[in-house]
Structures are given as structure tokens and as C-alpha cells.
């Protein structure tokens, strides 16, 4: 019963997100709309944490399970990629690692900058 209620709440949010996605004049993935919607509903306390907690924890723990069939569909697109295999792999690897390093160091840099600014403000206040 509890699980069914939680599922009903989450699926309703998803359906609402699908409706919003259908109305929007541009293509925007409904999952992301659902994510924003659920976040806002939690923030505004329309949905409480305990209303969806068990299902959400289960899903978050096993999130990669849901991507298995999509990943298996690679076997269908191998034909298109023939002759470009190593380029494909290299592009994915290089660009992923560059993105990771650039992003991580940007975040670390901005945080350090913020710390410096707050430290300076602290000095002035003294």
C-alpha cells in the first residue's frame, strides 16, 4: 500500500511533466521537467519527503539497472559505426576527461575565490 501510494505520487509528477513537455514550443526532455517539478513540489512542501522516500531510495540505489536495455541497444547501431570505432572511442574518452578536469577545477577555483572574497570582507569588518 505504502509503496503503491509512493509510486502513484511519482508517476503523477511524471505525467504532469509529460503534459508540460507536450505544451512547450520547443523539445525539452520530460524527465528533466519532472526532476524540476518534483524538486519544486518538495521545496514548496506540497510533497513531503516521507511520501516518496522508500521508492526513491530504492531507485537511486539501483539507478544503473534502468539503463541496461538502452545500453544493450548498442548492438543495433554497431553497423553505422563500422570504420569509425576507434575515432568514436577516442572522442568519447578525450572529451569526457577534458570535461571532467575543466569542470572539477572550475568548481574548485570558484570556491577558492569565494573563500578569498569572504575572508577579505571579514578583514574589513574587523
Amino acid at each position: 500500500m505504502k509503496i503503491l501510494i509512493q509510486l502513484a505520487i511519482i508517476f503523477s509528477v511524471c505525467l504532469a511533466a509529460e503534459c508540460i513537455a507536450a505544451v512547450l514550443p520547443f523539445t525539452f526532455p520530460s524527465g528533466v521537467i519532472g526532476m524540476i517539478l518534483l524538486f519544486l513540489l518538495l521545496l514548496l512542501k506540497f510533497i513531503k519527503r516521507r511520501h516518496i522516500e522508500d521508492v526513491s531510495q530504492f531507485v537511486l540505489k539501483n539507478i544503473s539497472f534502468f539503463y541496461i536495455p538502452t545500453a544493450v541497444s548498442i548492438m543495433e547501431s554497431v553497423g553505422y559505426l563500422q570504420g569509425y570505432m576507434w575515432q568514436f572511442a577516442l572522442i568519447c574518452i578525450v572529451s569526457a576527461l577534458l570535461t571532467f578536469l575543466a569542470t572539477a577545477y572550475t568548481v574548485i577555483g570558484v570556491m577558492k575565490l569565494q573563500e578569498k572574497i569572504t575572508a577579505k570582507k571579514g578583514d574589513k569588518n574587523e
Partner: peptide, 24 residues
């Protein structure tokens, strides 16, 4: 295989939605 696989894939939208919970 995808007769069953596609049923799992349907849940990708709720799964993405639940990420909103982890952000919260």
C-alpha cells in the same frame, strides 16, 4: 529482448524525475 527491455526503459522518465528528490 527489447519486448521486456522497453518496459524497463519506460521507467527512465520516473528515474530522472527522482533525481529531483536527491537534489532536494
Amino acid at each position: 529482448y527489447n519486448e521486456g527491455g522497453s518496459i524497463i526503459t519506460v521507467f527512465l522518465v520516473p528515474v530522472t524525475t527522482i533525481l529531483g528528490y536527491s537534489i532536494y
